[in-house]
């Protein structure tokens, strides 16, 4: 919220904060994606992503809830909770750098896990879907960057 949203003073429009990832894909197209990517099942307490790991997958949380934790093992803090239906982990998918947070399941659930290698395979089988996926991931990054900028310079 801006406190000084002077009328007509060009305060930027509110940042878009919700994206539906690949909203126009049909079930059949999802089935084709799922052939080449990984589906993780997990239990409560299981780590999907471990801070510091080099793992270049992004995740679609198809069921369950997960916590995002930062800090050392002795001093972990939950910074947020991710709900069913969210997409996360896309930064390391692109830059392949070490994970900065741990993702730990709060409940039993499942996630679709898409690594870079999976993506290359998908691109080979389904270039159209892969292209759309890439643009969507770009859109997610752009949205999150805009949000970050809006915090940094608000």
């Amino acid at each position: 919220m801006a406190f000084f949203d002077y009328p007509g003073s060009g305060v930027p429009n509110p940042v878009e904060t919700e994206i539906t990832f690949l909203a126009d894909l049909s079930e059949a197209e999802w089935a084709r994606i799922l052939k080449v990517v990984e589906t993780r099942q997990f239990r409560a307490g299981e780590n999907l992503i471990q801070s510091g790991d080099q793992d270049d997958a992004f995740y679609l949380l198809t069921s369950g809830e997960v916590d995002v934790l930062i800090g050392s093992e002795e001093d972990e803090r939950i910074i947020t909770t991710i709900a069913e239906g969210s997409v996360f982990g896309e930064i390391a998918f692109f830059d392949q750098e070490a994970r900065t947070a741990t993702i730990r399941a709060r409940s039993r659930g499942s996630a679709v896990r898409i690594t870079r290698e999976n993506f290359e395979t998908l691109a080979a089988w389904e270039p159209g879907i892969a292209r759309r996926m890439l643009v969507e991931l770009g859109r997610i990054l752009a949205m999150r960057l805009r949000w970050t900028l809006s915090i940094a310079f608000n």
Binding site: V15, T17, E18, T20, F21, V87, I151, N154
Partner: peptide
């Protein structure tokens, strides 16, 4: 900002 960005998947 009014709400962290969320990405939904169907």
């Amino acid at each position: 900002p009014s709400g962290e960005p969320r990405v939904r998947v169907q």
